[in-house]
Amino acid sequence: MSTHSSGETWSVNTPGAVNVSFDGRPLVAVPGQNIGAALVSNGITAWRSTRKNARPRGLFCGIGVCFDCLVTVDGEANQRACLVEVQEGMEIEGSCPDQGGRA
């Protein structure tokens, strides 16, 4: 998983919060956001790595066409993070093999 320092401060203006987890770590998302937006606004910009070269991937097309953004949601593998809206208690998992300590 790669994170990026500019993730913390984007303002969100919808009241309420949705609690989800990403790879076991609690995250707060905004109601109505998709998983991709919830991850990116929590500073997580890549959550999958490629089979051959283990390169990081996150959002690319943003509309469900490229499948770069795949995540596991509540045990369902291969869901597109850019299309699925966050729900309270959702358990999201990435598939980066090298997550050690880089959160």
Binding site: P56, F60, C61, I63
Partner: peptide, 9 residues
């Protein structure tokens, strides 16, 4: 690289 997106995306 992550961070590259489609403009429409």
């Amino acid at each position: 690289l992550p961070g590259v997106m489609a403009a429409g995306g």
